[in-house]
């Protein structure tokens, strides 16, 4: 079986040299897989249940929670593997210091963006924290999902920051 090549315009897969990065990637993989397989299983059971006359009320809410898991974890995973889509016109033609500076600036901007995502999410979560935010039917508490996303966004920002400060790449 040929290797599945499905990272558009990616840079060569970053070395996951540190133990911390490897650990993070495992965590992201496990959470993302739970989300992905969970969404698959729950939606399929909902179809099956409906056709057997045993409808599952609130299945959409479980899938929604699964989607939060898989979306957060997948963004972290894509970041660890440097799989974000980018235009290579210039980067591939540069070598040495120029390329180095460009990549660092790009990582810095990425860190700022995810930090902003996190700050905005924290602000909102703080306002809603005592507001008992939960889903309609199953009363799934949304604040823990918000918290998961905040931790993820902060972690992604941190990954980009380590790339900025690290010497040589």
């Amino acid at each position: 079986m040929g290797e599945s090549a499905e990272q558009p315009a990616r840079e060569p897969v970053a070395e996951l040299e540190s133990a911390a990065a490897r650990w993070l990637e495992r965590v992201a993989f496990v959470i993302g897989s739970i989300g992905l397989l969970g969404a698959m299983a729950v939606d399929s059971l909902a179809v099956l249940g409906r056709h057997l006359g045993l409808p599952i009320l609130g299945s959409i809410e479980i899938v929604q929670a699964c989607v939060v898991l898989l979306a957060s974890a997948s963004m972290l995973g894509a970041t660890l593997r440097a799989a974000h889509a980018r235009v290579h016109i210039l980067i591939d033609r540069l070598h040495g210091a120029g390329k180095h500076v460009l990549l660092r600036c790009s990582d810095l901007l990425s860190a700022i963006v995810f930090l902003t995502f996190a700050i905005g999410s924290i602000w909102i979560a703080r306002e809603l924290w005592g507001g008992h935010e939960h889903s309609e039917l199953l009363h799934i508490p949304l604040r823990w999902l918000r918290a998961l996303w905040i931790v993820t966004a902060l972690t992604i920002a941190a990954v980009f920051v380590t790339r900025v400060v690290r010497k040589g790449r």
């Binding site: 899938v63 929670a65 989607v67 957060s72 995502f117 700050i119 999410s121 602000w123 909102i124 996303w149």
Partner: peptide, 20 residues
């Protein structure tokens, strides 16, 4: 706005279709 857009998007049921 960034906070609203991000959580609203990653918790969207309909977008879960894409990864599936």
């Amino acid at each position: 706005k960034a906070g609203v857009v991000t959580f609203e998007t990653i918790s969207r049921y309909e977008l879960g279709v894409l990864p599936l």
